[in-house]
Amino acid sequence: MKIRSYKPLLPLFLIYALLILIAVAVPGMWQPVAFFMFYVALGQAFNIFMGLTGYVDFGYVAFLGLGAYGMAIAIKYFSSLGLISILLGILLAVVMSILLSLAVGAVALRLRGAYFAIATIGVNEGFRYLIEGVRLWGGSEGIVLSGLMRRTFGRETANLLSTFFSDILIIAIAILAAMTTIWILNRKMGYALLALREDEDAARVMGINVTKYKIMAFITSASFAGLIGAVAWTLKLTYVFPEDVFNIHYTVEAIVIVMLGGAGTLLGPVVGGLIYGVLKYYLSVVFPGIQLLILAPMLILTIIAFPEGIVGFIKKKGKKSRISYYLR
């Protein structure tokens, strides 16, 4: 295998292109595709850290939450700048989630395994209760922007922002995350991280600067999370409530997506996100009320059949065949 191979991007972009085509061509499919893309992007972003390092950040949703607040604050206080406030929001979202990731990284990344995972829950929950407790950023009442956005940007533009533009941005984030992933995989950093995932102590002994790469992956992953929170939540939904954006359920969903597709693979989170999103959407359309009862056994069966995820499984099977050029 060539060391620097971008071929694996091909099937990935094929999937993206197909999705975009469906969204544009089939009436009424735009929002559902945006919904699938939310999960795809979430999986991609989460995979950069969890998939590559093997560390599970249970409090990951805090980065999304902070990103959502970043965007909300920018729109709320700088709406006079017009649409520039949205650019500002994106910037603020990234900065805020990077700051948090630095803080968490400095403290929690010293912990191993489950201790790290749970410590991050502590960060997430602590943050949420701090916001509610000292009534920061509106406390539990959150920040509601619909009216403000409609007044300052105009009705049409505001609607366009939350029903079209935010979805385009999510797709862009998903593409960017994929490219970042392959870029990392192709570089020394990727190999270092894989070594770290197999055996952190051994990697350290081999002279790999484990801490540096770990933190780099963590920050990258966190800033993507901040972007997703800013775009898929604040810009799209036009409100932010703390109990909503610090809900650990989203982290669990991210883990499920990554595991479903295959941790550490490029295509895995995309496949996982699609399966999860499509199932969730269509089951709730076809079997309203009992969709989760059907979804749960399907997830369990999938993981029993493919313990390393679907892409992980194919990768293993097709190790010697030509498929392997297109899978990472």
Partner: peptide, 9 residues
């Protein structure tokens, strides 16, 4: 982590 998905289910 695959068991995590299973217990979630």
């Amino acid at each position: 982590l695959s068991t995590l998905l299973a217990t979630f289910g």
